[in-house]
Design a protein around this nucleic acid. Structure first.
Lengths: 192, 192
DNA sequence: GTTCTGTGATTGAACGTTCATTCATCCTCT
DNA sequence: AGAGGATGAATGAACGTTCAATCACAGAAC
């Protein structure tokens, strides 16, 4: 599995896959190694211990999100258009990478996401804060705390993706359009 | 600790306290027993195993939320007023019981919250669905799926409480009023 | 009132398992 | 030949769970 990629990435992808399905404590290092096609000792060449591995996955995951969302951002557009792009790109990314979505949800609500973790700079969070800050500077959205804004928007995208996954059939039947939530949020934060 | 309450509740409260701080896997049964003031064997008179204990806590916790929120509901009011009451009561409850808030967040995003868990009937979720269903029946909110509506509202309350806890000082400085989010949501779901 | 007896909860040492981590050994290149 | 990565059996700590022994106490017997 993943034999063509470099070892560190193999280990991360293998662990990501196990953790999203079974959780942190039900994903033994031995199994991570097996799925990655390496010996368990090899993991310790790349990560100091299991906790470092999990934090390594978090960093990998947030970098992947940042890459995808920032790639789709065009600073020449109006902030309204940029906002809708941001929303769509983040949603698409999670739907293309369900294991990342599930891991991220688990991580954010776990004790791994400690206070020092939240203080640590993080490429994705920094991008997200900066994104909303630029909207405020341009005077297109209300001058709320950009950190709070980004958490709120990201939380809503997260939970909408989760709902879509869990209620796939029911949503189709009821013809729900969850994407309308994005209009609701935009109407709430835009400057009138 | 909790010596005056009955044993089962002692065990639940002790485990709730440990889990909200350290997570599921870093809360050994031996420590739960110690904090509850019982022997570890005693836990197995009340719960089949550790997983049953965790699910027992979830049931206890959701029942507490339901009691608090339904107590503050007055079906004679307009649905708009009921909505704002619901929002306020849920927020207040989490702020009064931070360990429940943290446990609930962790549980919902963990593999414990399996598919069968989501199908299982749950007093709080049933209440919440029923609440939004009645708003739809009265024609005061849009005919969206009440399950989706309740998840969205509950998710937003959850994350606002989390933000308030994590950014206590920053919010005070920036004079943020997160409760405005409730107006934003109401404007989005109400029938014009 | 006192002693006896049955019942069911409580205890915590002991057990077996699982797990993260280590390290002597073994490749695989250069 | 040598350096450095990779191996996986071995290690020991930690964990969930069990169970024989103990305890608390209610009612019966006297």
């Amino acid at each position: 599995m993943h034999n063509l990629l470099d070892k560190k990435k193999c280990i991360i992808l293998s662990a990501l896959d196990l953790i999203q399905e079974h959780g942190f404590h039900a994903s033994p290092v031995s199994q991570v190694a097996k799925n990655a096609g390496v010996a368990s000792g090899t993991i310790y060449t790349y990560f100091e211990n299991k906790e470092a591995l999990i934090i390594g996955i978090f960093e990998y995951v947030t970098e992947e999100i940042r890459k995808y969302v920032s790639k789709g951002d065009d600073t020449n557009l109006s902030f309204k258009d940029r906002f809708y792009n941001y929303w769509k790109n983040l949603t698409d990314f999670y739907e293309l990478n369900p294991s990342i979505h599930r891991f991220y949800d688990q991580f954010l609500n776990s004790p791994f996401n400690s206070e020092e973790m939240q203080i640590k700079s993080n490429v994705w969070h920094d991008f997200s804060h900066g994104f909303f800050e630029s909207g405020i500077k341009q005077g297109e959205i209300k001058a709320l705390n950009p950190i709070v804004l980004s958490i709120l928007v990201n939380t809503n995208v997260n939970s909408i993706v989760r709902i879509k996954r869990n209620f796939k059939n029911k949503l189709a039947r009821n013809n729900m359009d969850l994407d309308e939530i994005s209009h609701l949020i935009w109407d709430g934060i835009k400057v009138e």
